Computed example of a mutant assay.
Amino acid sequence: MRTRPRLFRLPTFLQAASVGVASLLLSGCFYANTSQAPIATTYPYTEQQRMQAAHHWDVLARHEATSILQRERVRNRDLYISAADDNDVSTYRGGEFGRGFRTLLTSELVSRGANLTTIPTVNGAIITVDVDVVEHRDRGFVRPPTGAFTALTAGVAVATIPINHWAEPALGLIPAGILADITSGSWTNTGNEEIIVTTQIIDGERILYSSSNIYYINAGDRRQYAPHSIPRAPVTPTVSITDTW
């Protein structure tokens, strides 16, 4: 009896893999040759700190004082830290960050031997601090903190162990809780409010030093950084009625 030769067949998982590779190759060809609009992509992973304590203002003041005194052009100059500009009409006056940061920067510079004056001098330079608030109104998807998905999946995996091995299933959440406690301290929400803090040293028409730093802030803290950007509350009209006899 003549037997029919058996055809070699790939295992099922190899068939699926080959189909996937072929699809990727084909999609790559289409992608490389046809595109009616630029394809959206992302930036490399970066981190940005959130400013939400007066201690953070002090950290920035120490950083700026160190950077300023490293500049040969300003190290031995008389420096005057200008006050906040209050010329704009605003419902709120002051600005806790403006006053606090200038005070902290003054303390840091004086403690390190800088020549600070209470009024501008002829041969001195002026330190200015400017704060810009950036509000994002239509942000797309923002990737969660690094390790968030890993921590969540690890917690789910650990929670299934006690069902088979431990007497009390709730004990399986303990390792997940420990993992969350270890990693959650470095997580915070991205938010839609940012500030750009720019510190400059100006001598006449020359800029001797300029440094800008960007931070996230809490939405409710905007008044601390840019009081002039808070809208004025609507005025309720009043009507007086007088009786005439």
Rank of each mutant, 00 (worst) to 15 (best):
T188M: 07
A17T: 14
L24V: 15
D78Q: 14
V131S: 11
L24C: 03
R4Q: 12
F8N: 02
G140F: 01
I39A: 03
W57S: 07
G191N: 12
A84T: 06
A125G: 02
T117R: 15
R112K: 14
M51V: 02
G172V: 03
P44Q: 10
S27A: 15
L105Y: 03
Q52R: 10
E47S: 12
W57M: 04
E205R: 09
T160M: 03
T91E: 15
V74P: 05
N189F: 15
Y80M: 03
L105T: 06
N115R: 14
V197K: 00
L171S: 13
G95L: 10
E135P: 00
A83R: 08
N189V: 12
E168A: 13
N189M: 09
T188W: 15
Q36C: 00
Y216S: 09
G220S: 14
A84E: 04
I81L: 11
Q36K: 06
A17V: 15
V110D: 08
S184P: 02
P145T: 04
R75S: 02
E135C: 01
R75M: 01
F97W: 03
Y209W: 11
H228M: 10
P175M: 02
I174N: 12
D243W: 08
A180C: 06
H63C: 08
G113E: 03
V158P: 05
I127K: 06
N87F: 05
R73V: 09
S67Y: 03
T103C: 00
G100R: 07
T41F: 04
L25A: 15
R232G: 01
Y43C: 11
L105A: 07
R139N: 06
V239A: 07
L25F: 02
I195K: 07
L7G: 08
H165T: 11
A157K: 03
G98S: 03
G140Y: 12
E64K: 01
G113V: 13
G100T: 14
R102D: 04
R62H: 07
A151S: 10
D181N: 07
L69N: 01
D181K: 11
N123C: 00
T190S: 14
Q48P: 11
I174E: 07
I217F: 12
F30H: 09
A65M: 00
Q48I: 12
R99F: 12
P162K: 12
R93L: 13
A151P: 00
G185Q: 08
R137E: 08
H165D: 02
P227T: 02
L69Q: 13
S90Q: 14
R71P: 08
T12Q: 10
S23V: 15
R137F: 09
N76Q: 09
A61H: 07
T91G: 08
Y31A: 13
A32G: 10
A61L: 02
G155P: 03
D138K: 05
G98L: 13
S27E: 06
P120K: 13
L104G: 00
Y31K: 01
T238K: 06
I196D: 12
R137W: 02
A65I: 05
L173V: 13
V59W: 04
D181C: 11
V110F: 07
V133F: 02
T118I: 11
I174L: 13
T118F: 04
Q15E: 10
G172Y: 06
A16V: 15
Y80W: 13
H228V: 00
D243I: 10
D138Y: 10
T160Q: 05
A167W: 01
A40D: 14
V197T: 06
Y215K: 03
L79R: 04
G177R: 11
I126Y: 05
